[in-house]
Amino acid sequence: MNKKDAIIKIEHVYKYFGQFLALEDINLDVFKQEKIVIIGPSGSGKSTLLRTINQLEKVTSGKIIVDGVDVTEPGVDLNKIRTSLGMVFQSFNLFPHKTVLENLTLAPIKLKKLSKEEAEEIALNLLDKVGIKDKANNYPKQLSGGQQQRVAIARALAMNPKIMLFDEPTSALDPEMIGEVLDVMKDLAKEGMTMVVVSHEMGFAREVADRVVFMDSGKIVEVGTPEHFFKNPIHPRTKQFLSQIL
């Protein structure tokens, strides 16, 4: 892939939480339509890295260029950039006071100034796609965890983002519900969405990822294709991690 196609460019990013160095000299390019899966032990900084991309987490130094805009620049219109960066959280974070349909239409109506009818049409199509159209008028608390996470994915997609960020989307789910969420993510991958996924789901990484990024202690230790990564990891820390979880 051509370097020009990088839709996210992360350059020399450092992040301190007080004295603690959470990210150390991170460099990573994500190309259009690429699927990146970030793995690593807990506390390795993978969620922090993901959250710097849409600036839910500010960086201490370094640059992050998303679709041509340096998001670390002071005064940049983050709200506008975030509309093209969908994010899915571990704990779903659906709006409990709104119905499923309203969760999907709130941002398009208020931010994209769509009419209620237009927004609802898009929302219902998306709910159909993630397989929960029949729950459109329910409140999030009436749904199972897997259903809530699928709504959360649909809510992010309703803004028609260019990139989707997933922060451990299946970690809070009961085992039998993980599959339904991963299936939705796989469909999304097939449609060519650019995706950055923090996950412990090795099966998903193997099947969907173009590249796997392994992080440890705030550093990127190894980057490679799934075949390289799971069959012939180079770094001893990667080998150790994989032997522990596989």
């Binding site: 839910l56 709200n79 506008k80 975030r82 959280f89 704990s91 941002a107 809510r155 992010a156």
Partner: peptide, 15 residues
């Protein structure tokens, strides 16, 4: 109110 609510709203592009 859970911090995740603010993060979800901000990540959709709300100020």
């Amino acid at each position: 109110i859970d911090k995740g609510q603010t993060e979800a709203a901000m990540s959709l592009g709300f100020n």
